[in-house]
Nucleic acid binder design. Structure first.
Length: 403
RNA sequence: GUGAGAUUAGCUCAGCUGGUUAGAGCACUGGUUUGUGGUGCCGGGGGUCGCGGGUUCGAAUCCCGUAUCUCACCCCA
């Protein structure tokens, strides 16, 4: 038997119901915030991700599905959504057009990782990207949007916030941090020694307990923010307070993708195991320029759909449409015609075998039909059809022409 | 990439230290003496026990390999 590749799942039945329910709910809310759908290719030039996500990140370093296509191009399956949207934004010259541009997307992402709960090789994200808005109100809107989506789906969460600083304060802080790391270099883990030169900020979220205790005295970026970053951060907190969104400051929150700056946030759930991040995002004001566009402020987030699926509270399913059956083989052709006609307006299923009434009712119940319509000997003679409302338990007999 | 555990019917699992035709519940399907369901009763189909080797008179059960899943590390959504 040929099986699907490791970490790549089919989505069907109950999962698909949940999946589409999530997409519909999230899309509707994104539209309410003024965002428009965008679809970008699953395959892109490898250079796009190397430059945006960052060479030092694990994603680019060891998790990409990368290959050379028949034309000799170095390409890879997208490991995340932002890079493609930014590429499209620049390619469509929207950076030159000016103004604000707001997009949302959803679809498959690919990372060659060891699968476990909440971590697949092909997984799905829903994300939004906003271009051209510098105001921290936009950052706040992003967070409120995630909160709205999670609330609409009945999902509980904790929100973690941090500021990563900008070009003004980050370089000085980085230097400071490196100096600090050097002072404890003898005792930190191998990974952190490597991080010191590749991406020193990342040592802060090292999971090693010994490292963590050493870093307690490390300089904190949140205390070294420049005036602009500082005021945006306090403004954000004020907005969230005013809108009843609770949060925790996590000074070690470092996003795994290199393009973030200033506000960074992560929504986590305590109910899905160790892969607890259900949404993450932040501001990335330098990325558009870095990908050869005109400098454009931008902010966005992404949600991991598979991780949310099991947390979603589905609305109660309502009985819907018609089930039609015949109690006499003679009536089957007529039932077929009526079913076809009924499908112009309603969901309609039928049974191809003549059965007794009890079995038809059972079958109608099983497919969750609202109405069970049956034609038997009496109805054939009268030119009528018997219809029972399975919800209200009422029944009527009407002319076949009125059905 | 590292470590640990699992893999028996469509699903959830039982099967003791290797021993006659591998079981249960749910699901599916048929009937319930021939016109009233979701909740009665009786029956039926369905498993080369993940795959490949090995040990043995004999393996679902022991050993080795391999695939996948799960958990942890790591990473992230």
């Amino acid at each position: 038997m040929i099986k699907s590749l490791r970490g790549m799942n089919d989505i069907l039945s109950e999962d698909y119901k949940r999946y589409t329910y999530f997409i519909q709910t999230a899309s509707k809310i994104a539209q309410k915030y003024g965002f428009h759908f965008i679809e970008t290719p699953l395959l892109e030039e490898t250079a796009l991700f190397k430059r945006s996500v960052g060479e030092s990140s694990d994603i680019v370093g060891k998790e990409m599905y990368q290959f050379t296509d028949k034309g000799g191009n170095d390409v890879c399956l997208r490991p995340e959504g932002t890079a493609g949207v930014v590429r499209a934004f620049i390619q469509q010259k929207l950076d030159r057009a000016g103004g604000t541009h707001r997009f949302f997307y959803h679809g498959a992402m690919f990372r060659y990782e060891r699968p476990q709960k909440g971590r697949l090789r092909q997984f799905h994200q829903f994300g939004v990207e906003s271009f051209g808005v510098e105001s921290v109100y936009e950052d706040a809107s992003m967070i409120m949007m995630v909160s709205d989506i999670l609330k609409a789906l009945g999902i509980g969460y904790r929100l973690q916030l941090n500021s990563l600083g900008d070009n003004n304060c980050m370089p000085a802080y980085r230097e400071n941090l490196v100096k600090f790391i050097e002072s404890v270099e003898e005792e930190i883990c191998e990974d952190c020694k490597r991080r010191k030169s590749t991406n020193p900020i990342r040592v802060l979220d090292c999971k090693n307990e010994k490292c963590q205790s050493l870093y307690e005295n490390a300089p904190k970026l949140i205390n070294s923010l420049c005036e602009n970053c500082e005021s945006d951060f306090s403004q954000l907190k004020k907005i969230l307070d005013e809108n009843d969104i609770t949060y925790e400051i996590d000074t070690n929150l470092v996003r795994g993708l290199d393009y973030y700056s200033k506000i960074a946030f992560e929504f986590v759930s305590d109910n899905i195991g160790t892969q607890s991040a259900i949404a993450g995002g932040g501001r990335y004001d330098r990325l558009v320029e870095f990908l050869d566009g005109r400098p454009t402020p931008a902010v966005g987030f992404a949600m991991g759909i598979e991780r949310l699926l099991e947390l979603i509270e589905m609305p109660q399913e309502q009985r819907e449409g018609y089930y039609i059956g015949a109690m006499d083989e003679e009536a089957l052709d007529l039932v077929m015609q009526l079913a076809h006609k009924k499908r112009a307006t309603d969901k309609t299923t039928m049974d191809y075998k003549a059965k007794n009434l009890k079995n038809h009712l059972k079958a109608a119940d099983k497919v969750n039909a609202r109405y069970c319509a049956v034609i038997g000997e009496n109805e054939i003679n009268d030119g009528t059809i018997w219809v029972k409302d399975l919800h209200n338990k009422t029944e009527i007999t009407i002319d076949q022409g009125e059905f």
